[in-house]
Design a protein around this nucleic acid. Sequence first.
RNA 1: UCCUCAGUAGCUCAGUUGGUUAGAGCGGCGGACUGUUAAUCCGUAGGUCGUAGGUUCAAGUCCUACCUGAGGAGCCA
Length: 462
Amino acid sequence: MIRSTVKELFAGGKLNEAVLLKGWVRTRRGNKKVAFIAINDGTTIHNMQVVADAEKFPEALLKQVTTGCSLSVKGRLVESLGKGQQVEIHAESIELLGACDPEVYPLQKKGHSFEFLREIAHLRFRTNTFGAVFRIRHALSFAIHKYFNDKGFYYLHTPIITASDAEGAGAMFRVTTLDLVDPPRDDQGKIDFGQDFFGRSTNLTVSGQLEGELGALALSSIYTFGPTFRAENSNTPRHVAEFWMIEPEMAFYDIDDNMDLAEDFLKYLVRYALDHCKDDLDFLNNMIDKELLERLQFILENDFVRISYTEAIELLEKSGKQFEFPVGWGADLQAEHERYLVEQEFKKPVILTGYPSEIKSFYMKQNEDGKTVRAMDVLFPKIGEIIGGSQREENHEKLLKRMREMEIPEEELWWYLDTRKFGTVEHSGFGLGFERLLMFVTGMSNIRDVIPFPRTPKSAEF
RNA sequence: UCCUCAGUAGCUCAGUUGGUUAGAGCGGCGGACUGUUAAUCCGUAGGUCGUAGGUUCAAGUCCUACCUGAGGAGCCA
């Protein structure tokens, strides 16, 4: 007999047929006469109830049917006699695939704190919440590829190990095969990376953007979607040391095209989740965040507000609100400022553009005013900055000048500069933090709970 | 990295101005119950009070350092 999944059985079509189901026991209830076994196989948030007539099965077998054990059940799928589920399986045979000692199995029927579940990250997939979160994570990964593929973008694999440490996106993790106890040293006593595996100093990537630009300046539109690493000692619910980032990069796009794409992309992903993950989102809306579905719907129905950094500063100054950090042109916006704009002033997602060049990266296109660059940050309610991007500086002279001003080693980025020498064109791109998107879509409030095995300072157990 | 808070049973927590034998709910185990839905009811076991020092006649409780976790800030995605 072919195994059916819980999802298939709830989809209908097998009513009153003999079926085979395999999965893990969530709960067992009952009495001397009858046992009710809730089985979950991860294919859906819902459990299948198996009803076992106690007289038909050895007591020793039913005794081993405890929370967490794995079972193979043959039986008939019938309309449920009880309330709470439409169908159930009346068991004809039950095979214990793997026992689960209830005295030491850490998951119980009752809810656990997310902090505790992080300590047993290898088992937390078996809970309703994490099952839902990781099914949604899968669905959105797939949707990202679908979106870009349908739009004619090419998926470009940018390197995980990079030689340049000039990407300017934060502290990096070193990659080396040198003996850390006794590394080779040069005349000055400094570590000689010439003897390292790649013959030079290398790190884990903090962004695929620079390589992404190389691809876009030949293939028109590309995107990367892969792991990214930041060795920042950040201890917040919005940061992890290893996270997944989506970085589209488009030739012949200016900053307005870039904003249009970012807004369309985010709305597409939210809609995809609503269309394909209804059961899981309903569960999360019920258990985690009562306003989740409302907020997702709201994103779809409203245009993002687009204002310049200068206008934002004026609004903040006029607001009459007392901020902990002073507002003034030239200073970066603090979290409280961004929160005010998104949650009080507009109550919508906001795209901020035209930041002062001093507070932004070297590769961003300089505006004619000589003071600002064509950067854009997309700010979302609850989670803050979800996207950072810009139109890139395509003028070789201006880019070189800016690199020298900001002391970016131009010899290391000769290949990047080459693109501005050989048929340069206007182009743009942005980075979307996948986990931050997931936080928004699932309503989970800690980034450690939307990635299977979070990497944070002092924590890499699994 | 800075600030704040927390760490007591497998989990979630209570524990008074320092004072005898550290409590509860859930989970586990044993039992009862003819269809349960986080079942219910009765019973029961379970603790190096984060670690190391210190103060005191006496420390879960006060002090110091460290470790771990959470929230806020910074960095950013």
